[in-house]
Each structure stands twice: as structure tokens, then as C-alpha cells.
Design a protein around this nucleic acid. Structure first.
Lengths: 172, 172
DNA sequence: TCATGAATAGTCAATACTGACTAATCAGTA
DNA sequence: TACTGATTAGTCAGTATTGACTATTCATGA
């Protein structure tokens, strides 16, 4: 339900139409949520059907009419529940890139080490990007800090694994 | 493609039927992959259609016949490609539990701090479970070590955030 | 003024994933 | 032996997600 939480949270600020929501998520929160356009509209439809949000046809200038969504009182109740559930829990993190590690011994140690060095560069790049991100509004800043903390931890771990592999190479 | 990588990697060891694959993933790798039964059969069908794996009807005792899957030479080529791609790259991690942070200021600081303390307990429990996991075969052990490293880093960060909130409460 | 490309706003068919179900066999036991 | 619950093996209908597409408006500059 984290995307529902996100959309409800954004709509609490003020009514928005689908594209506006999408744009905000894409530009301000791309690093922590992946929300595609059809998924967003699907979720909006679903939440409207559930009565968590309402919408009216809005017209602006000559543009084609569009749905402007608002959070309903029931939606606000759901938002608060989802928020509390979210803050109190921790969903175990699955790293997609971990599966390769299970089979790293299929390749030679030097090749594995070399490939993981490329991975290290990728992590380093993401870290630099996060550190150079312009300040974001309110709580989003907290998420960026989390990302930075996490990426630094990943870098440290990767360095450790690579070092261990190199010792094994030297010792063989 | 990380699930394809996983299934191919497991089938490299020896031919297996769907249920066997599922069972291994469920018992040995549940903490790092989430693979539901219908998804597994779906992927096996798809990979068989692509020629990455083959199967024959196997019979054992009086049990109903079942498909025993084997990796093909083309499948081995794909496996090696996917493995190298996986090791060399780093998919940015999205933490589902981060979204709540963006809206934490909706609640009072004491309540937020209290909820995050519950989250800390959840993280701590997962850490203890990972630390007490029996030794796993080969590369899977590496993934467990990664999880432990990550959970310790999460704990440290959470402690820091909670502490900051408590200072803000005291100072207000 | 009238192409041209970017921005706006959204839809749709196809793919991927899951919860809930079926159905057979086996192991234990009353 | 006949019943019960666990294990094995898989399917299917419904839900979720996505890539690719449509269609309008706006800005611009030749």
C-alpha cells in the first residue's frame, strides 16, 4: 500500500490531476519510488472507487477537461492508518543484485572481482548523485539522507567483499 | 531478469521439477527472493519456450507424472551473460518503508518517534534472525552476510533519526 | 501563418504476478 | 481398512503493471 500512501499524502496538500501527481513523483521522488503513468491512473481509479478520493472535471483555458482529485474524509482516515502502519514496520529489503552473488563462484575469482569493481563504480555514481541532489521539501530530505547512508554502507561492504576475493586470489 | 538468473543457476546443478525448485528457494533463499508458485511455473514455461531450458516427463513410483527441467546450452550462455550483467551493475534500492518518512511530520514528533521505535524493534528482530541463520551453501552465505551488514546499517540510521527527533521534542 | 517539436493528459492491449483452488498420493492411526 | 491430515504438483481466474500509442495544446521561429 505504499503507493496509495504516497498519492493520498500528496493529495492532502491540495487537489491535483493525474499528470501533476505523476510529475511531482517523477521529478522529486524518482530515487525512492517507481510509479509509471498507467499504474498511477489505475491506483487513482481504484481509490476513487473505494471512496478514498473524489474528483471533478476541471477545465483550464482551452485545454481538454481533466479530472482533479481530492482526498475525502474517509481517505484521510486511511492515510493516517497507512502512515502509522508504515512508520511502525520494516519490510525486509530484497536486493535484486544479490542473486548474482549466490553464483559468483561460477566465474574465476579475478573476473568476479573485476565485475564487482564495476558494480562499485555504479554505487559510487549513485552516491555522488544523491549527495549532489538539491535540497528537497520537508520529509523527502530525510529519504535522501537515508539513501546516502545506505549507499555508503553498500560501498563499504562491496569494498570488503572485493578485498576478500583479492586476498583469495593472492593466496592461491 | 534476476529470477531467470536464479532458476537457471539452480538448474545448472542438476535437473529439477518445478516443485523442487520452489522448495529450495522457499527454504534456503526466502530472505532474499520472493518467488510465488504460479510465477515460478510461468517463468519455467517462458524459458522453455525461449529454449533456455528443456524438460521431459518424469515418473517416480505411483506419483503423477511431472516435468523435469534441464538447462540447455543456450540457457547456459544466457546464464553467463545474466550473471556478468548482474555482478557488474547496481540496481538502486527502493525502500518501501521510506515513503512514510516523507509524511512523518503529519504526526506529532513524540508519536513519530514512538512508531519508529517499533520499527527499530522489527529491524532488530530481522537482524537477530539473520545472525542465527544456520550456515547456507556456497554463495548464499555471502547474501546472508550482506543482509546482516545492511540491517546493522539500518539500525544505526534509525537510531540516529529517532535520537534527532527526541532532541527536537526536548528543545520545543 | 504555419510547420515543428515539446509539453500535457490520458488510454489500451499485452504482460506479469498472485490468491485461491484442485487433485493425487502418502503416512499415521484407530 | 478406512479416515485424517500433511505433502506433492500444478492450474486458473482475477489483479497489477507496463510499453506503446493517441490526441490535444502550446511555444518558436522561418
Amino acid at each position: 500500500m505504499e503507493r496509495e500512501l504516497l498519492l493520498l499524502g500528496l493529495l492532502r496538500a491540495h487537489g491535483m490531476h493525474g499528470y501533476q501527481l505523476l510529475e511531482f513523483v517523477d521529478t522529486q521522488m524518482a530515487f525512492c519510488v517507481d510509479l509509471k503513468k498507467p499504474t498511477a491512473y489505475f491506483l487513482l481509479d481504484k481509490m476513487a472507487a473505494a471512496g478514498w478520493i473524489s474528483f471533478e472535471q476541471g477545465q483550464e483555458g482551452n485545454r481538454p477537461p481533466r479530472r482533479v482529485y481530492h482526498i475525502t474524509p474517509e481517505g484521510e482516515v486511511v492515510f493516517q492508518r497507512l502512515l502509522r502502519e508504515n512508520l511502525a514496520s520494516y519490510a525486509p529489503t530484497r536486493f535484486a543484485t544479490d542473486i548474482g552473488l549466490a553464483f559468483a563462484d561460477v566465474l574465476s575469482k579475478p573476473e568476479s572481482a573485476h565485475l564487482l569493481e564495476q558494480r562499485r563504480i555504479a554505487v559510487q555514481e549513485q552516491l555522488t548523485a544523491a549527495q549532489n541532489a538539491p535540497p528537497h521539501p520537508g520529509g523527502v530530505q530525510l529519504i535522501i539522507e537515508h539513501q546516502i547512508h545506505h549507499l555508503m554502507s553498500e560501498l563499504q561492504w562491496l569494498n570488503d567483499v572485493i578485498k576478500r576475493m583479492q586476498i583469495q586470489i593472492a593466496g592461491s
